[in-house]
Structures are given as C-alpha cells and as structure tokens.
C-alpha cells in the first residue's frame, strides 16, 4: 500500500539519515514528493511510503520515536472551497494534479490525494482560500 505523510523534524534530526533508516529496516520504498531541508534548521519532507501495512506502521513508529512529526498529508492543506470562485489562478502553480480546472464545466477540481504540500497555491489564490495547517488539523 502507498501512503503519503508530511514529516517535520528538528535541526538535530536533520543530520541523521532517517529516510534510509526506514528503507533498510522495514523494506519499504520512499518517494520524496517535496523537501525543504538544510543543516542547522528544521526540515520538512513530503513522502510517499510504499510497503505492507505493517511496514508502514513500523516506519511511522520509528520516525516518531526519533523525534519526527508524521502527519498524514491529506490533512495538511485546508481549502475553503465554498468561497472559491473557480477563477483558476491556483492551477497555474499546481503541478501535482491536486488543483485542476475541469475544461467542460470550468469548475476547479481539488484532488487532496495528489497534493504534495508545496504551498504555492497559498500565495497564488487571490481569495486566500488555502492554508497549510502544519499538522494542526491532524
């Protein structure tokens, strides 16, 4: 099975190879969708973990035990869709397939599963309808 998470970690954890740790320990594959990491400051990774259900559970446990905050990524981006006017501005910066214009109805389609939490839509929406919760909603 595949599951996406947003991982957040402190500057101490940044210097440790946590991703390769879980790959080796639990025989899963990790697809990094988005990353914002540099030594000496907190890091953020959006990953898709692929493996057995048990292996994914163990991976998340392992990460949490080592000080990594794991949040299911679908809860990360909050979209106040009711107020949306379907202008399409957000689709100009969304390359993950999460925000797509339906070219028949010209309605904005929001596919939360495809989101990689890059955050570009937050700034691109002229009505400011997107927020990244930093795991607060989870």
């Amino acid at each position: 099975m595949k599951k996406r998470y947003v991982l957040r970690f402190s500057p101490e954890v940044v210097n440790r190879p946590i991703v390769s740790d879980i790959i080796k320990a639990f025989n899963i594959s990790v697809n990094i969708m988005n990353a914002d990491i540099s030594s000496g400051r907190a890091g953020m990774l959006v990953v898709e973990l692929d493996g057995s259900e048990e292996a994914l559970e163990h991976s998340v446990e392992y990460l949490q035990r080592h000080g990594v905050d794991c949040s299911p990524h679908v809860k990360e981006l909050v979209f106040d869709q009711e107020k949306c006017v379907d202008c399409g501005s957000c689709t100009s910066v969304c390359f993950s397939g999460a925000l797509v214009m339906n070219r028949e109805s010209w309605e904005l389609e929001y596919h939360a599963d495809s989101c990689v939490v890059c955050g570009l839509c937050v700034e691109a929406c002229p009505l400011r309808l997107f927020t990244i919760t930093r795991g607060a909603a989870s």
Partner: peptide
C-alpha cells in the same frame, strides 16, 4: 501549462 485568472464558470 496555462491557467485562467477570470472565472469562466461565473461568466457563464
């Protein structure tokens, strides 16, 4: 990639 800024849905 192209994207509109004006809403076709509202215009319709």
């Amino acid at each position: 990639k192209t994207a509109p800024l004006s809403s076709m849905k509202k215009a319709r």
